[in-house]
Design a protein around this nucleic acid. Structure first.
Lengths: 230, 230
DNA sequence: GCCGTCACAATATGATCAAATTTTTTTCTG
DNA sequence: CAGAAAAAAATTTGATCATATTGTGACGGC
């Protein structure tokens, strides 16, 4: 199951991206996707040799991708040469709430200034698809589109460094969010995306930032609770 | 000169760290140090083969270290298989000012709550050494100790994720700061460290955060000016 | 001024060595 | 004789390197 998913993901990534990127980049993207949206659960060990076998590439690209993901905080190096998906603690989540609020509310604020009506329409289209995945109980699709929504928004902030910080945080809590959603289903996931879109249309940057903060806190609180009752 | 510095740094790192860590980790630390405090100037290309030659290790460890540093933002991958030290733009610096203010002021705030008198004494000792490097015009020493001062402070915040974000930002502006200091010397570098220490002793978390913000803005503004007049 | 060829650097693989974990065997005790 | 603990072997995994392959930029010929 794990192997098959990895291969399937690789294949789909290949067709979309013209197969022209180096293997280590592809492996990185594949693993990133697996960690954020896939079935790599927190605590699960990640082995180099296992990945070389399932991805069908040599060890060097795999090693490079793993190092990058460790630097991203998406994987952790546990002393004895072992690498695994991180398990979050309550304090971890608390720090992430603070950091996400600080960084992402600013990204929203800046995006609000730059986005055109057409841009907002595109964003709304993503949100509509998102609603469909919630209705269908499609957890994987929900996670992907929720990420896509925020990424799209932040892309318009014109602040690559802040966006990079945000992305790094997403990589950190991705696996745990996946577990929470898998457990509770997609029903209990009301989001503030509608508020964000409304505020964008009103060109009210502060309101956009506020709605983003609420969206973040809603999602992260849910995660914190789930981790606490574990 | 470059080669020699790299080798020297590697040797000193080896003796302090019991030689027991894997080579890719050592290479990472060495390069990190080179980028933050050494003579790798912004825009300078970094080649794998050059590093394997100067460090005396195989390419695999070097590649892994470079990937990590790219993920950190300390190096950039310029599309055509080229890797170099990043050149900062004005908007980059502006984003970093925002992010550093948000993250590091919070780290200071939290550290203020946790630090004992003995901890503060240690911090003050670092600051005294720092003053000596300024008086001596020792740019490398200044950079190292300035970093050590903040790192020490943030270590007491008990917030590893926020500290990691801060560290990542330092890696990004390190090389440019180095250039600025090299150009203007250490004279024009008054810091707010004394204010931070005073506020810590008074257990006034808000004052500590404020002083940290001022320290950050002072340093970053200087950098922004230097980049603008380039 | 454009295209083909050459040299160099990066990418990727497989082999080799070392470390750690797991399994098996052995031995000692109840 | 059975069970458990300790020791030893085997397997698995990681780290490093040497080498082959591929792509990139530069130089020179047309």
């Amino acid at each position: 199951m794990n192997q098959l998913d990895l291969i399937k993901n690789k294949a789909s990534a290949a067709v979309t991206q013209t197969e022209k990127r180096p293997a280590h980049e592809q492996v990185y993207q594949t693993l990133k996707s697996q960690i954020m949206f896939g079935d790599l659960v927190p605590g699960q060990p990640v082995t180099i040799q296992g990945l070389t076998d399932s991805l069908g590439v040599g060890m060097t690209p795999v090693r490079e991708a793993i190092r990058r993901l460790i630097s991203d905080g998406a994987l952790i190096f546990q002393g004895n040469r072992r690498v695994s998906v991180p398990l979050l603690t309550a304090t971890d989540v608390e720090q992430m709430i603070f950091a996400r609020n600080a960084v992402e509310s600013e990204l929203s604020r800046r995006a609000a200034v730059n986005m055109t009506t057409a841009d907002i329409d595109q964003l709304e289209k993503i949100d509509e698809q998102l609603d469909r995945t919630i209705a269908d109980g499609d957890v994987g699709g929900y996670l992907r589109l929720n990420h896509a929504f925020h990424e799209k928004l932040y892309d318009h902030a014109g602040a690559p460094i802040l966006k990079d910080l945000a992305e790094r945080l997403w990589l950190r809590f991705g696996p745990s969010l996946r577990v929470v959603c898998g457990r509770f289903g997609t029903q209990s996931l009301p989001d503030r995306h509608k508020d964000i879109i409304d505020a964008l249309r009103a060109s009210d940057a502060e309101k956009v930032a506020k709605a983003t903060t609420q969206d973040i806190e809603q999602g992260m609180e849910l995660m914190a609770e789930a981790l606490a009752t574990e």
